[in-house]
Every structure is written in structure tokens, then in C-alpha cells.
């Protein structure tokens, strides 16, 4: 066997390895989702979506949980979007490129890797206790906003720096102020990327459980929250609570709730992909 044959064989072997790992990963996910759907589908109904939690599995629903998730999602968006995008714009456009900026940059990247439960402890101390917000939706949303801020900042910066400098030059050379260039050129051109980052960060926040348990989201909330200062629960906590019950019926409830949660995250990721493609087509220079 000469060397061309050997490298061809290796080539083939590697391709088979690549295909099998890819198929393997997708298959595991597919089996998992299929199993969940098989288990949970029978329980999934309009009734399930609008029922309050109950001691009896058959009467129990996820109304409070998904309303709580929605509240948290909206508040987290309102808090993290302006802060994160603003910080990203500042660091990329205004901040001087000095040692301090380097230091900040590394720290923001590090923050993105801090375990979420640590953010929960921070939220518990800062928002729940010191600011006396209690176990409220607001405290939970602020905590989640902190958790995803680094991701939003990093993706905002990446989206902005992907805008060709020739566009910036063109705008500046026409007498645009810095802000005008950012507002009329940089942001429209990078908005698809920014939005994608924000949505992916939010879909991570929707699935978070640990930090919310730490700040005191409850497992059993007998009413749907009416305002940001109310106590609350969210879907992942409801699921966590159900799977830890011994009765099989509650596990089925958990499976049904997982379907709803997966649907929400898939929907958000889908929106992110759609926006990215749309903007890319519009901005192909």
C-alpha cells in the first residue's frame, strides 16, 4: 500500500467517524425528545396550560409556571437588553483601547463562564436582602439579567466589530457625528447579530433553574403573579419539583411541561436564526 492509498483510507475512516458522531449526537437528542413527547403528550391539553398546580397530578397544571416564565422573560429582556447593548456599544465604540479596557474585556469573558448558582447567591444577597425585594419576580429577573449580561455584551461587540470600517469611514467623512454614525450605520448593520445574541441569551435564561431557586422562586404558587413584586415560579422549577415526586403521574406532568419549555426555547432559537438570515441577506457587502 503506498502513501496515497494510506491517506485515502485515513480520509475515509475520518469521514465515517465524523458522520457517526454527528448522527449519534442527533440521535440521542431525537430519542430523548421522542421519549419526552411519548410520555408527556397524553397530558398536554388546554386544561393543562390553564390549570393551577394541585396536590392531585391529574388536576395539576402549569398556568402559574408559564405566566411566571413569561413575566421573568419580559422583565429580564427589559433590564438586560439596554444595559448589555449599551455596554457593548460603549466598549466597542467609545472606550479607549488601553490596559483597563483589556482588563474589562477579559473579566466580561470570565463572567460569562461563572456558574449560574453563584449569580443566584449574588442576587439573593443584593436584590432579595439588601434591596429588600423579597422573593419577587423583579429580584429573579435582575439576577437572570446579570447572568446573561456578559453574553449580550460579548455578542453585541462581535456584531459591531463585524461592520466593515469602510462604512464608518464613509459616514464620518460626510460630517456625521460619532453618535449619528452609530445610530444610522453601525446599529442597523449590526442589529441582526445583536438581536441574535440577545435572543440566544434569553433562551438560556428561560431554562435556568438554579439561580432562581436560590433567590427564592417557589415550587408551589397557588396564584398567577399580578405584578413584578409578586412571588412566582417558572417552568424549570415546576418541572424540577414534579420529577422529584414519587408518584408516576407527576413525572408525566413534568414531561408535558418539558414539551412546553422546549417549544418556547426552540421558538426563540428559531426567531434568532430567522433574524440572522434576514439581516445577512440585506447586508451582503
Amino acid at each position: 500500500m503506498n502513501s496515497t492509498d494510506t491517506s485515502r483510507t485515513k480520509d475515509k475512516a475520518f469521514r465515517i467517524l465524523g458522520i457517526s458522531t454527528t448522527v449519534g449526537c442527533v440521535l440521542i437528542l431525537a430519542v430523548f425528545i421522542g421519549f419526552i413527547i411519548y410520555q408527556g403528550m397524553e397530558r398536554l391539553s388546554w386544561e393543562f396550560l390553564v390549570s393551577l398546580p394541585s396536590r392531585f397530578a391529574e388536576q395539576s397544571g402549569i398556568y402559574t409556571a408559564w405566566i411566571g416564565t413569561l413575566w421573568v422573560l419580559v422583565l429580564t429582556t427589559l433590564i438586560s437588553f439596554p444595559l448589555g447593548v449599551g455596554a457593548g456599544i460603549y466598549l466597542e465604540e467609545y472606550g479607549k483601547k488601553n490596559k483597563l479596557a483589556k482588563f474589562l474585556e477579559i473579566n466580561i469573558a470570565n463572567l460569562a463562564g461563572v456558574p449560574s448558582v453563584i449569580y443566584g447567591l449574588l442576587g439573593l444577597e443584593a436584590f432579595v436582602r439588601i434591596m429588600k425585594m423579597g422573593n419577587s419576580i423583579l429580584a429573579g429577573s435582575l439576577t437572570l439579567a446579570l447572568l446573561i449580561l456578559p453574553i449580550i455584551i460579548v455578542s453585541t461587540r462581535e456584531a459591531i466589530s463585524a461592520v466593515p470600517s469602510s462604512i464608518r469611514d464613509a459616514s464620518n467623512a460626510l460630517g456625521a457625528s460619532k453618535w449619528q454614525t452609530i445610530w444610522h450605520q453601525i446599529l442597523p448593520a449590526s442589529f441582526g447579530g445583536i438581536l441574535t445574541g440577545v435572543i440566544l441569551a434569553l433562551s438560556r435564561a428561560v431554562g435556568e433553574t438554579a439561580p432562581l431557586i436560590v433567590v427564592g422562586a417557589l415550587a408551589y404558587v397557588p396564584f398567577a403573579p399580578q405584578g413584578p413584586m409578586d412571588e412566582f415560579t417558572v417552568l424549570p422549577i415546576q418541572i424540577f419539583n414534579w420529577v422529584s415526586r414519587p408518584q408516576h403521574e407527576f413525572v408525566i406532568n413534568a414531561a408535558a411541561a418539558i414539551i412546553v419549555l422546549l417549544f418556547i426555547t426552540f421558538l426563540m432559537n428559531g426567531i434568532a436564526v430567522y433574524l440572522r438570515n434576514r439581516w445577512q441577506n440585506k447586508m451582503n457587502w
Partner: peptide, 19 residues
């Protein structure tokens, strides 16, 4: 500097129209 650039226009090496 914004006023200056209204008086002194510039054309660049690579055509750079806005999208």
C-alpha cells in the same frame, strides 16, 4: 470636525456605499 468634513469631502479606495 463635522463642520470641516462638510467642506472637505472624501472618496475612498474601495467603493463603500451604505447598504
Amino acid at each position: 470636525v463635522e463642520e470641516l468634513r462638510k467642506t472637505v469631502g472624501m472618496v475612498f479606495q474601495k467603493p463603500n456605499p451604505f447598504p
